[in-house]
Design a protein around this nucleic acid. Structure first.
Lengths: 152, 152
DNA sequence: TTAGTAATGAAAATCATTTTCAATAAGATC
DNA sequence: GATCTTATTGAAAATGATTTTCATTACTAA
């Protein structure tokens, strides 16, 4: 689960796919690693471009798509027309969280409390599902929908 | 939870919002009610249009957006560029299910087994979250991601 | 009726995302 | 090292799902 040496957990996934670890890709991961926001592709691009102006928007899109397929990044649709991206955090970790979403104003609350029961529930369900459907499960997402205080 | 008389559960939500129950809206709900597919707006439009050719694509989009905001329909993004819609099913019901998604080929497996533990977990978490964050929670979604047999 | 408002459809506009394509960089092979 | 092969990249153009505009129609309430 932890990085080994200076290598990070995600580098294994790159190797398995024969994908190269390039400057743009590292930068995208780095940016996602250092934020708690739900960033859109364009948000990532703006930051990346400030650090390294040679990076193009297309590459950001391609990198995010690739990272999503590798299970390194999770892609969300909160209903505002742009996809949002987050680095995957392992279930026990500090940054692991889920979303509580207001259907009207689309406010997103990240919650990381109350995860004790989730851990057990997810573990069991994941085991059963992966056996039954022959999946190698790498991640999960849980979202609650409703109306926030102001939108009731 | 059940419809009362010929009224259906979702009609209450319409009334609360002062929204009219019109032919196009009923038709969209009806179509979603009678499928197990994950339909895109355009899928819904094609069916709707066959039944009632006067219905426009715009209305289908507007209706799906509205139903999503009312918590009657759930909107999903499975990563193929089109939003997918499903009628919300209450957690105890037969059609309640969640998704297992292959990150590579984007196959979606609907699963409705192994929901016993979910019921309890969701109930508790929902209670705690709604108190702490002052939300009226109406629904939830759980997704597992990974690689299917063919894509490992 | 009649006024006021919500809902609708067609066409046009928007805009996030993809595709194309030529250029570059990296790895493998000799 | 030189060369071949393939992956990666960026800019510009294309795509296509979704939204907006706007004139029309259908309700609802008075």
């Amino acid at each position: 689960m932890r990085g080994r040496g200076r290598g990070a957990w995600w580098q294994d996934r790159f190797e398995n796919m024969g994908a190269r670890i390039t400057a743009p890709r590292e930068l995208v991961i780095d940016i996602l690693h250092n934020t708690d926001d739900h960033m859109s592709a364009s948000d990532v691009y703006i930051q990346a471009h400030q650090i390294n102006p040679s990076i193009g928007l297309t590459t950001v899109y391609r990198t995010l798509e690739m990272l999503t397929q590798l299970g390194i990044v999770q892609k969300f649709d909160f209903g505002d027309g742009k996809a949002r991206f987050e680095l995957v955090n392992n279930p026990g970790g500090k940054k692991h969280h889920h979303h509580l979403i207001c259907l009207r104003c689309k406010t997103i609350v990240d919650y990381s409390e109350f995860l004790e029961e989730e851990l057990e529930f997810v573990r069991k369900t994941q085991n059963k599902l992966s056996k039954k459907h022959n999946f190698q499960i790498t991640d999960h997402a849980i979202s609650f929908y409703g109306f926030c205080e102001r939108c009731r």
